[in-house]
Amino acid sequence: MLYQLGGTQFDVVPFNTHETDHEMGGDFAAKDLIGALRDREFVGPSDEKLTFSCRIFPAKFGGIEELEGLQVAAVSGEPQILVRGDGTNLGWWVIDKVGDKATFLDIKGVGRVIEVQIAITRVPVPGKTTILGALLRLFG
């Protein structure tokens, strides 16, 4: 197993993940200054995003069921736990999009090669309330 997102395992076969793209950083509020460059004030971490590039070969190895499972999970909006192949728990993530591009279509219209892109964003632990969130609910 390379990764597992919710109930879907990314492996060499049938759902082959061959590339990941990870992005994270900080968010800053810009402040105008007279006669100088705009200052930036750190306001917290920015969204952490991860994109998986996958390739499936339905006629030889399958993988359509895993693709459909990811599409269902994306539409549900439910956070999914992400675990790396070495057993590291990477936290909770929502699926922003699942895109696929089929090439070399067979007689039934199914691609012999399907390139899949899965974009996910890290979210807090489901049900965990922050102090600020609790205060806003008290007064809001």
Score class of each variant (00 low, 15 high):
Thr103Lys: 05
Gly99Thr: 14
Val75Arg: 12
Ala73His: 01
Ile114Glu: 02
Asp32Gln: 13
Asp27Gln: 09
Phe52Cys: 01
Ala73Glu: 04
Val43Asn: 04
Thr129Gly: 01
Phe15His: 02
Asp47Trp: 02
Ala102Lys: 06
Thr51Trp: 10
Val113Ile: 14
Thr129Ile: 07
Gly140Gln: 13
Gly77Tyr: 03
Gly25Phe: 02
Pro58Met: 08
Arg122Met: 03
Asp21Ile: 11
Gly77Leu: 07
Ala119Asn: 14
Arg40Leu: 15
Gly87Pro: 00
Leu135Asp: 08
Lys128Glu: 14
Gly127Met: 09
Glu41Asp: 12
Gln71Trp: 07
Ala119Ser: 15
Asp39Leu: 15
Thr17Glu: 08
Gly44His: 01
Phe57Val: 13
Leu50Cys: 06
Pro79Met: 03
Ile95Phe: 09
Lys60His: 12
Glu68Thr: 14
Gly7His: 06
Trp92Lys: 10
Lys101Ile: 15
Asn89Tyr: 12
Arg55Glu: 15
Val12Thr: 14
Thr121Cys: 01
Ala134Trp: 12
Glu48Met: 00
Ile118Asn: 05
Gly77Asn: 02
Phe28Ser: 07
Asn89Ile: 06
Gly26Ala: 00
Ala59Gln: 13
Lys60Ile: 15
Ile95Leu: 10
Gly109Phe: 05
Arg137Phe: 07
Ile107Gly: 15
Leu50Glu: 09
Thr88Ala: 14
Gly25Ala: 06
Phe104Ala: 15
Gly87Phe: 04
Ala134Thr: 13
Gln71Ser: 12
Glu41Thr: 09
Val98Ile: 11
Gln117Gly: 08
Phe15Asn: 02
Ala134Asn: 10
Asp100Ala: 14
Ala29Phe: 07
Asp47Cys: 01
Ser46Lys: 01
Asn89Pro: 03
